[in-house]
Simulated scan of single mutants.
Amino acid sequence: MQLAKKAQTAGGSFQIVSNPRVTQTVKLVRLESFLSLQPNVDTAIANVDK
């Protein structure tokens, strides 16, 4: 969470490549709005430029 906040404050983004089980757990604890979970590295890299 600290890294995601620091990246956002600096105008960047913090992309996390995760598997479906981790994604489900993050959604269960309602952190998906704070963490940018991606299914693969290519998608994460594409989202860094946005």
Rank of each mutant, 00 (worst) to 15 (best):
M1N: 06
M1V: 03
Q2H: 10
Q2G: 09
L3Q: 13
A4E: 11
A4I: 02
K5L: 13
K5R: 15
K5C: 05
A7W: 02
A7D: 02
Q8L: 13
Q8H: 10
Q8I: 02
T9I: 06
T9P: 00
A10P: 02
G11W: 08
G11R: 05
S13E: 12
S13G: 07
Q15V: 02
Q15K: 14
Q15W: 01
I16S: 04
I16Y: 06
I16R: 00
V17H: 03
V17E: 01
S18F: 01
S18N: 03
N19V: 06
P20D: 09
P20A: 08
P20V: 03
P20F: 07
P20R: 05
R21D: 12
V22I: 13
V22Q: 08
V22C: 06
V22R: 04
T23Y: 08
T23F: 07
T23E: 15
T23V: 07
Q24I: 00
Q24W: 05
Q24R: 14
Q24Y: 04
T25H: 12
T25P: 00
T25C: 06
V26W: 04
V26T: 10
K27N: 15
K27A: 07
L28T: 08
L28Q: 12
L28R: 09
L28H: 09
R30H: 11
S33D: 14
S33T: 09
S33N: 14
F34E: 15
F34L: 14
L35T: 01
L35Y: 04
L37R: 07
Q38P: 00
P39N: 03
P39Y: 01
P39F: 03
P39G: 02
P39C: 03
P39I: 00
N40R: 06
V41P: 02
V41C: 04
D42F: 06
A44G: 04
A44L: 06
A44E: 03
I45Y: 06
I45L: 15
A46L: 08
A46E: 13
A46V: 01
V48F: 09
D49K: 13
K50A: 10
K50R: 14
